[in-house]
């Protein structure tokens, strides 16, 4: 290999432009959209049997070390939809949206419009709770007979997800015994709301589902 030229005058530019290198090496971040995925949804009678607890989980498979840095997306509205009339169209919604260190809740309230697009129903009962930081004791709040929590928790889901995938893919013909809980030892970001049954239909059967909605 030849020696590097030692005459400054004829040496030419190496880098050329800082920003040329920049353009090359800062790849776009992962496309969002999966960050708003709902990993799980639960609805069950609370400790107070006159109430129903709803759990909406997002951002699954958080390792303990990753949990401290995980945060709710302030552009994502989490909406619990409640159909009290049996037509699978929501009659009531409970909305949750983070702002700063708090999770704000509205409802249960009849939405101004049903379907794919929502506005935040600020006329509904407004509540809020401090988002519990990783490593702190759970902070809960009560308002109007309702209870609220938002923050990281152990992922309550259990399943041998991988073996199930192998079966679906045709790589395996049976589950293992014992199976392996894919979600063991991992955390999720949870929103938990407990609501008096009287606020969501009183008696009979309701149909419920959770949605995540992104700010346009």
């Amino acid at each position: 290999m030849k020696r590097v030229t030692t005459i400054l005058g004829i040496s030419i530019v190496l880098i050329g432009s800082f920003f040329l290198i920049a353009a090359d090496h800062i790849d776009a971040p992962a496309v969002q959209g999966t960050s708003s995925d709902i990993t799980d949804f639960y609805a069950f009678q609370g400790e107070d049997t006159n109430s129903i607890a709803f759990v909406v989980n997002t951002q699954g498979l958080l390792s303990p070390a990753a949990t401290g840095n995980a945060s709710f997306n302030e552009n994502t509205l989490i909406e619990i939809n409640i159909d009290t009339s049996g037509d699978n169209v929501e009659d009531l919604v409970i909305q949750a949206i983070p702002r700063g260190d708090k999770m704000y809740f509205f409802g249960p309230v009849a939405p101004s419009a049903t379907g794919l697009n929502s506005v935040i129903e600020t006329s509904g009962t407004a509540s809020s709770v401090d988002i519990t930081a990783y490593g702190s004791a759970a902070i809960t709040e009560t308002n109007n007979g309702m209870k609220f929590f938002a923050g990281p928790r152990d992922d309550p889901f259990f399943m041998d997800f991988a073996q199930y995938g192998e079966i679906i893919a045709g790589n395996a013909t049976s589950f293992n015994d014992p199976g392996s809980d894919t979600f063991a030892g991992t955390n999720v970001l949870s929103i938990v709301v407990e609501v008096p049954k009287s606020l969501i239909g009183g008696s009979g059967t309701i149909n419920v589902w959770a949605e995540s909605k992104g700010k346009q």
Binding site: S118, A210, E211, G214
Partner: peptide, 8 residues
């Protein structure tokens, strides 16, 4: 306005 992304 918030538009639907995921549901469950």
């Amino acid at each position: 306005t918030f538009a639907q992304q995921d549901q469950m």
